[in-house]
Every structure is written in C-alpha cells, then in structure tokens.
Design a protein around this nucleic acid. Structure first.
Length: 182
DNA sequence: CTCGGGATGCGT
DNA sequence: CGCATCCCGAGG
C-alpha cells in the first residue's frame, strides 16, 4: 500500500479534505487488515472556526489538533462513540479533517456509514488519539486517479456554530451509496 | 468540586 | 423525538 507522506497533510484542511476522498484508510489490528475507501469528510479550519473543537483553545482534548500534520485526532462523543480526524497544516493551525464515511474494500464487518460507525468498524478508539499516520497500525494510502465528482454541503451537527454552520465544508463523492446522508 | 453539553446512532 | 453514557471545559 502506498502510504501518503507527511506533506499530504501539511496543507489547508479544505484542500486535504477534497484530496483525501477516494483514498484508502488502512487499519491493521489483531493480525488482520481492514481497508475502506474514504467517501465523505468534513474540514475544520482552526480556532477561528466556531464549529471546530480547537475554537476552545489548546486544551488536553484538542492538543492533537494543535500539533503537527498527519496525526490522528480521535475523541469520544456522547459518552458512547468515537470520531476520527486527521490533523492538517503546521502545528498551531489547529485544523483537521473528520472522516465521516467509508466504502468497505476488504476485511470490514459492520457499517461504515457515519463517523462513529466508521471508527467502530475499523476498531479505532481513544488509544489511537495522537497516532502518527505514517505508522503501520493506521494510515491512509493512495487510490487510483479520481474520476468522481465532489459534492459540497454544510457540515452535519454543528448548528450551534452560527454562520460557520452554513459554510460548505462537508465533502463527499457524488452518487456514492456509502455517504452517510445524501 | 459540580455541572452542562456534545462533529452520533438507534429505537420508538 | 428521546435516550444512552462519559469526558472535557467552564465556573465557583
């Protein structure tokens, strides 16, 4: 698998979000390998983005967002679920891309249509918070040349963020049946 | 220390 | 639409 280099993540979150569509998320656990094609993501731009966790500033929770690019930001939501992001841009920018849905490729059982279902199917939990995506247990690999079209929509579940909730920072592959909602 | 709420998913 | 269930961040 052709692992994406650090430089891929060292760009504005919006750009990484678009480019990561169609790439493969690879998880190696329990002696096996699970692979899914990334079909839906959201960009969180930094502390000025009221919908981003980093808008709260540098805290224990958000430290990975504030760190260097190419690391997994995994957090627990509603006391039950985990969500996974990739940190983007230089340390201090505190931007990230949330992975929202995968199209199963191999080794995956269970649903991957939604950020919390995705992490469950890929066995991604708190232990992988801060994990370097250039490692072997969790990384993103290149896919074939994209032929799909990208749809832009407002992000899901951030109504509290005022004008930022209306920004078109959710991206997904047009017509892909694994997108969490059309 | 307490307290409120959350980048969700599922069942009713 | 309500609920599960826990960590974090704010405030006293």
């Amino acid at each position: 698998m052709n692992k994406l280099p650090r430089e891929f993540y060292d760009r504005p979150a919006e750009q990484v979000a678009r480019d990561i569509l169609g790439k493969y998320l690879v998880r190696r656990v329990d002696g096996g390998q699970r692979v899914g094609r990334i079909v839906e993501v959201e960009a969180y731009l930094g502390p000025h983005d009221k919908a981003a966790h980093s808008a709260k500033g540098l805290t224990p929770r958000t430290r990975v967002m504030f760190g260097p690019p190419g690391y997994a930001y995994v957090y627990m939501i509603y006391g039950l679920h985990y969500c996974m992001n990739v940190a983007t841009e230089a340390a201090g920018k505190a931007s990230a891309v949330l992975l929202r849905a995968l199209e199963p490729v191999s080794g995956i059982e269970g649903r991957t249509q939604g950020p919390a279902l995705l992490t469950r199917a890929m066995a991604i939990t708190r232990e992988l918070n801060g994990y370097d995506l250039l490692g072997e247990a969790l990384f993103v690999a290149a896919g074939p040349e994209p032929t799909f079209r990208i749809v832009r929509r407002p992000r899901v579940g951030v109504d509290y963020a005022g004008a930022w909730a209306r920004r078109l920072l959710r991206f997904y592959i047009r017509g892909n049946p694994w997108v969490s909602r059309p």
